[in-house]
Amino acid sequence: MTDCKSTARSLSEWFATTPGGYVLDYEQAWFDRSVNDIFGYNALQLGLSGHDFLRNSRIPLRFSGEDKTGAALRLCADELPIACGSLDLVLLPHLLEFSALPHAILREVERVLRAEGSLIISGFNPHSLWGLHRTMVRRQGYPWCGHFIALHRLRDWLSLLGFEVAEISFDAYAPPFQQWLSRTDLIESAGKRWWPASGGVYFVHAIKRVPGMRLLKPSWNAGLVKKLLPVAPKLNNPQRGDTASCDNNVNRLDHE
């Protein structure tokens, strides 16, 4: 992750502040709701291992990993020590915007996910009051030192890797100032109604699609097929008149 000079030395420390706790509450609620409906056998959370965003998942094997001392699984997100097609769910909570290699991370995630596997990403929205604040202040400290990725750009990256975006959601509409965070109920309801795409954070649920094979059958020439097929012999189905003629012949033979 990017090395930033800040009172909070990591995003996890920033989540302990008032603005960070405000964002964390919405993120935890969204992850709890989303992972509950995803099934499979193996799930991985990359980054922020101190916060269990997989706690509500029904997947039996759940683990987290990051390049940090004390992590349950220490790894580099752009070189995952995981077999291809072995995971059913991967979470990327604010990992891409604080990484120097976001494209490499997405490529690795695509590799380790099985077909129809799910990827859930959370990120700070540059087209929001949080993004505006980042451009107006010195970009030091978390989360302002990160590179906020625009949603349309992220969708392009996912599309190139064969992902299909299934859901996009926004939250945290209040400005990133402590005096505004006491009136979040009014601001959140107004934001969801009047400017829904301007939340401070966004969530993207994408699914890995793998094109299936389709057997191409030859386009036969119907006229040629008719000529090549053998003609079945016609069965002699005697009509009513023929039956009467046969009966007369039998009677004549009997008299003779």
Rank of each mutant, 00 (worst) to 15 (best):
M1C: 06
M1L: 09
T2S: 07
D3C: 06
D3N: 13
C4H: 14
C4E: 11
K5R: 13
R9G: 14
E13S: 10
T17A: 03
Y22I: 03
L24H: 02
L24C: 01
L24A: 01
E27M: 05
W30F: 04
W30I: 02
R33A: 09
S34C: 10
D37S: 12
I38M: 02
A43D: 00
Q45F: 03
L46A: 04
L48M: 05
R55G: 10
R55A: 11
N56K: 08
R58G: 09
F63Y: 09
E66D: 14
D67M: 14
A71K: 09
A72P: 06
A72W: 03
R74Y: 05
E79C: 11
C84Y: 06
G85M: 01
G85I: 01
V90G: 00
L91P: 00
L92I: 04
L92G: 02
L95W: 06
F98H: 07
F98E: 03
S99K: 06
A104Y: 05
A104Q: 13
A104D: 12
E110A: 15
G117M: 00
I120D: 00
G123E: 13
G123A: 14
G123H: 07
W130A: 00
G131P: 04
L132R: 13
T135R: 14
Q140V: 08
Y142W: 13
Y142D: 03
W144I: 07
L151V: 06
H152Q: 08
L154C: 04
L160S: 10
A166S: 09
E167S: 06
S169F: 06
P175D: 04
P175T: 04
Q178Y: 04
Q179E: 12
L181C: 05
R183E: 06
D185H: 07
I187Y: 04
I187C: 05
S189W: 10
R193K: 14
R193G: 08
W194K: 12
W195A: 05
P196Y: 07
P196S: 09
A197Y: 04
S198M: 12
V201M: 04
F203D: 01
V204D: 00
H205P: 01
K208I: 01
K217E: 13
P218C: 08
W220L: 15
G223S: 13
K226A: 15
L229V: 15
P230A: 10
P230R: 11
P238W: 10
Q239R: 14
R240M: 14
D242L: 15
C246Y: 15
L253Q: 14
H255F: 12
